[in-house]
Amino acid sequence: MTTKTAHGPASPMTRHRTSGWLAFAGTLAVVIGAFNIIDGLVALFKDSYYLVGQNQILVFDYTTWGWIWLILGVVQIAVGAGILSGRMWARATGVFFAVVAAIGHLAFLVAFPIWSVLTIALCVLLIYALTAPPAGARAN
Results as ranks from 00 to 15, higher is better:
T2A: 13
T3I: 08
K4H: 11
P9S: 15
A10I: 08
P12H: 08
P12V: 10
P12W: 02
M13Y: 07
M13P: 01
L22W: 03
A23E: 11
A25Y: 05
A29V: 04
A29F: 01
V31W: 12
V31G: 10
I32Y: 04
A34H: 00
A34P: 00
N36P: 01
I37S: 02
I37Y: 09
I37P: 02
I37N: 08
G40K: 06
G40N: 07
A43E: 10
F45S: 10
D47V: 03
Y50V: 09
Y50N: 12
V52Y: 05
G53R: 08
V59E: 11
V59L: 14
F60A: 15
Y62I: 00
W65F: 10
G66N: 04
W67M: 12
I68Q: 07
L70Y: 02
L72A: 15
L72R: 00
Q76N: 12
I77F: 05
G80E: 06
A81T: 02
G82H: 08
G86Q: 07
W89N: 03
A90D: 11
T93G: 07
V95W: 01
F97V: 11
A98N: 08
V99T: 12
A102K: 02
L106M: 11
L106C: 03
A107S: 11
L109S: 09
S116V: 01
C123F: 00
L125Y: 04
L126G: 04
L130K: 00
R138G: 01
N140K: 04
N140P: 10
